[in-house]
């Protein structure tokens, strides 16, 4: 067992890393909203699910790929990947903003605590998941393969797959852009101000509604990118995918310490690797259990998550 593990260590690690980056991007959708509103953005999982469908629609219906088409190469390949990524990000971003307006805005203004918005967000995610289920006939949808999944090199014994490499590099670029946006721009400063103290930020003349919309937009963009990467890696999707990945990503956000970007980063990576290693040793059916047991152990020793700031009291 251990010998096998060492043989496969690097290929497992690469798979785990690319999965980890997908988790990071979805976790950002939860963590950014949580940072600003102190609310769980329950519908984020369905934003991810819609983004996976957006990617497939671009590849299948706009570029007319079928299961038997030849792989795209060169410039055309990058064009396809680029448009699919942008489209799924945009769809997810806009959807996320709409969700805020429908499910949160009115309740936020009424200052109704955190449970009412949680239920209305659950309602929105049911509506989204069910509409997609009806449109897709409750069946999983396979994505036509536009790109050859070639091996582009070796690292020790492991083959490095092109799709995993693209995911890791593109996700890192997105994260750098996000950090630059949050730390260097005026809007980013406003987001940080609202997440530190909403009332004080309001008194300083910051437009809270605007900041909340931007936060949902940015969180949605990141989640949308995750949708694209997911299809690139696994080449299929279904209406229930949001639920499965959403819980994992939410766990990742908590694991790292919800509410801050660094936490989502380490939490996502840790979860991606942990899941991959755990499914190797215990079989895939036990991976969710392992993840939750680790989560409980970590929260028990570090109640704010691995990298959580000491957020004083979050109330239910």
């Amino acid at each position: 067992m251990i010998g096998n593990f060492l043989d496969q260590f690097w290929s497992l690690t690469f798979g785990g890393l690319s999965l980890g980056f997908i988790y990071i991007l979805i976790a950002l959708g939860y963590t950014m909203v949580y940072g600003v509103l102190r609310m769980i953005n329950f519908a984020n999982s369905e934003v991810f699910m819609i983004a996976t469908f957006a990617t497939i629609i671009i590849v299948r219906d706009v570029y007319k790929f079928t299961q038997t088409s030849e792989y795209a190469t060169g410039f055309r390949l990058w064009l396809i990947l680029g448009t699919a990524l942008l489209a799924s990000m945009l769809v997810a971003g806009v959807l996320s903003v709409l969700i805020e307006i429908v499910a949160y805005r009115r309740l936020r203004r009424m200052n109704s605590g955190i449970l009412a918005p949680l239920i209305s967000a659950i309602g929105v995610s049911m509506v989204l998941a069910e509409s997609v289920r009806i449109m897709s006939d409750s069946r999983p949808v396979a994505s036509p393969r536009a790109m050859e999944k070639s091996f582009i090199g070796k690292f020790f014994d492991a083959d490095i797959r092109l799709d995993n490499t693209i995911i890791i590099i593109a996700a890192i670029i997105l994260l750098i852009l996000l950090l630059a946006f949050v730390n260097k721009t005026r809007l980013g400063k406003a987001i940080r101000a609202v997440s530190m103290n909403g009332n004080a930020a309001k008194l300083m003349g910051i437009n809270i509604d605007g900041v909340v919309s931007i936060t949902f937009l940015v969180g949605g963009l990141m989640t949308g990118a995750a949708g694209f990467f997911y299809v690139l890696k696994y080449e299929n999707t279904s209406f229930s995918i949001g639920f499965e990945l959403g819980i994992a990503a939410f766990t990742a956000a908590i694991l790292g310490g919800i509410g801050n970007i660094k936490g989502a980063f380490y939490g996502g990576l840790a979860l991606g690797l942990l899941e991959t290693y755990a499914s190797f040793f215990l079989g895939t059916q036990w991976k969710a259990v392992t993840v939750f047991v680790v989560l409980v152990l970590i929260l028990y020793t570090k109640p704010n998550g691995l990298f959580g700031e000491a957020m004083t009291q979050t109330r239910a």
Partner: peptide, 25 residues
């Protein structure tokens, strides 16, 4: 006993995880 030492949202995710663990077991 372990979970109630935590507050709010963490309690939410731990209980959620517990529900899933029971089902998976």
């Amino acid at each position: 006993v372990p979970a109630l030492k935590l507050r709010g949202d963490y309690l939410a995710i731990i209980t959620l995880g517990f529900g899933e663990i029971i089902r998976i077991v």
